[in-house]
Computed example of a mutant assay.
Amino acid sequence: MNNSLIKVYTDGGNRNTGNKPGQHVHERDLSAWAYIIEYEKKQYIASGFQFGATNNAMELMAVGSAFRKITKTEELKKQKIELISDSHYVLDPMEKGWLEKWMKTKKERPNFTMWQTLYPMYLE
């Protein structure tokens, strides 16, 4: 097994974040996500979009999509990952142990289904 580090860069967003009073993400608002996986001298790049998703949902979609790519790509499996993201919404639950607590308590929270999907890939 190679011990090279995989670097994963992710981002997600929506023009209308809903962070101000009275703002809401509307079903026609364009939302997007992207990732770049760097491993040795190779890059794997993907992006996508949907309408009406929140910024946080797109941040999770980027990470989940990158993790799925890693788990389905033989040379990437079982390698150590460094996740680079500007989203504390994504990073804090992983780095501070909140994600594991959330999965044990199964307390409903925003994007919980996405967190449930991400969790097994996070453990690998």
Rank of each mutant, 00 (worst) to 15 (best):
M1W: 08
I45N: 15
D29W: 03
L91N: 05
W33D: 02
I84M: 11
I37Y: 03
Y39E: 07
T54C: 13
D86W: 14
Y119S: 03
Y44E: 00
A57W: 03
T73N: 04
N19L: 14
L5Q: 12
E38S: 15
I36M: 10
F49R: 06
V25K: 00
K107C: 03
K77V: 14
K78A: 15
W33Q: 09
L30H: 10
G48R: 10
N2Q: 14
Q79T: 04
S65A: 15
T117K: 11
V8K: 00
H26I: 05
E82R: 10
P110E: 07
E75C: 04
K106W: 00
W98Q: 02
Q43R: 15
E124S: 12
T71N: 14
S31N: 11
P93L: 02
Y35D: 14
V90G: 05
E82Q: 14
T105C: 08
M121I: 04
K41F: 02
R15Q: 05
S4T: 10
V63E: 00
M1L: 07
D11R: 08
R68W: 11
G97P: 07
K106Y: 02
T113S: 10
N19R: 00
K78E: 14
L60Y: 09
Y119D: 09
K96L: 03
N111E: 06
K78Q: 15
R28I: 04
K7T: 11
N111P: 06
K101D: 02
T71K: 09
G64H: 15
D29N: 12
D11F: 08
